[in-house]
Write a protein that binds this DNA or RNA. Sequence first.
DNA 1: ATCACTTTTTGCCATTTGGCAAGTGCTTTC
DNA 2: GAAAGCACTTGCCAAATGGCAAAAAGTGAT
Lengths: 189, 189
Amino acid sequence: MDTFIEYVLQFGNLNKQQIDLIQSKAIEIELRKDEFYWEAGKAVKQIGFLTDGVLRVYYYNNKGEEITRYFIDEKHLILSGNNVDDFFIPSEYLQAITDCKMIVFTKQDWKDISETIIGWENIVQKIIAKHHTEKIKRRSDLISQDATTRYLDFIEKFPTLANRIPLSYIASYLGITQSSLSRIRKNIR
Amino acid sequence: MDTFIEYVLQFGNLNKQQIDLIQSKAIEIELRKDEFYWEAGKAVKQIGFLTDGVLRVYYYNNKGEEITRYFIDEKHLILSGNNVDDFFIPSEYLQAITDCKMIVFTKQDWKDISETIIGWENIVQKIIAKHHTEKIKRRSDLISQDATTRYLDFIEKFPTLANRIPLSYIASYLGITQSSLSRIRKNIR
DNA sequence: ATCACTTTTTGCCATTTGGCAAGTGCTTTC
DNA sequence: GAAAGCACTTGCCAAATGGCAAAAAGTGAT
C-alpha cells in the first residue's frame, strides 16, 4: 500500500487526511501467474495499481496469432481505457506473467477520491501522461532497430524476465517468430 | 474554430457561455509545409488543435538517423507532454508536412478555461485517452506484420498522403529503408 | 525413474529486407 | 536549355528473418 502512496506523491502533494482516505478505500489483491486481470469482452470494474510482478497485454491479430502488445512492470497504474467514468469493456487480455500483488479501487471509491481530493485528477493525468510517453517511446524505438538490438533492449528493460516467461510472449512483442528469437539468443551467448 | 468545438462536444457537454469562453481565447494560426510547431529543446508555450493538414513527429535515434515516430492528422489535440502545467521542453520535432491550420491557446488561457469550466479537465482526459489508445494500437499493430502490409495499412490510414510527402518519412515510420519501400511500392502496382 | 506434455532449439531452404552505388527523372536556377 | 540538386528507383549481392518439421530439453504428474 505504501508503495502506491509513495508513487502518487511523486506527482503531487497529499496531506495526512487525504492519504488516509486513499488507504481506507484500497484493497490489496494477489494474482497468480497466468491469471487474468482483464479479459477481452468482460467489463472492468476496478482501477488497479501493480505493486509487484509483471503483467502482459495481448490480443489476437487478424491471423489469429496472439500478439503481446506490451509488458507492464511494477509501479504502474492500470486504468480502464484510461478513463474512469466510462463503462469499459476491453478488447485485450491483461494477464499476470509472474505472481503479482496489486492494489485495487472500485470505480465508485475511485470516483469518491476524485471528488474529495482537490488536485487528484491532475495527479492522475500526470501519471497517465508519463505512462503513455514511455509506452509510445518504447514501442516506436523498437521499429528502427534490428531484432537483436530489440531483444537486448528488452533484456535491459526487463532483466529478470527474459528467462522466466515463455519465449513466445517476447517474440511477439518484438515482432519476430519464436524460432528467430531462439536463434538470436544463441548468437548472443 | 467550429471544428474544435464540435470535436470537444463529442466528449462532453458545454453550454453557450462556456463555448463563448473557449472561442474568445482561441487563436487561429497557419503553418506552411515544413514549418515546425515544436522543435527539440525549445520550450512549448501553447496548446494546439490541428484543424487541417498533417504533422509528423520525429527524432534522431542513436545512429543519427531521423525517425518519424508518428503522423498526426486532422482533429487532434496537441498538448505539451500531455500535461499543461509543466514547463515543457520537447525532445522531438513536430513538423507540418502539408500546409496546416491550427487553433492554439496560450498556457495561461488554457488554464483559465480549465479552472472556469467544470468538467473541462475530464473532457481533456477523455481526448488524451482516445489519442493514446489509437497511437499505441497503430504502433503495435505495425510490428506483427510484414512491410508490405504495414505500407498498405499506412495508405489506408492516410490515403491522401502517400504520394505527397517524402518517401523517407514513411519508410522510417514503417521501420524499413527507403529503397525497400520503393521496391514494395513497385510490387504493389 | 518414466511417461506425457510443453517449450525451446535446430536444420534446411525460401523469402524478405538491407547496403551500396549507379541510374533515372523531376525541379530549380541561371 | 544546361547544370546542379534532390528524390526516387533499380541492380547486385549479403544478411536477416520466416516457415516448417524434427529433435532436444525442460516440466509435472504418477
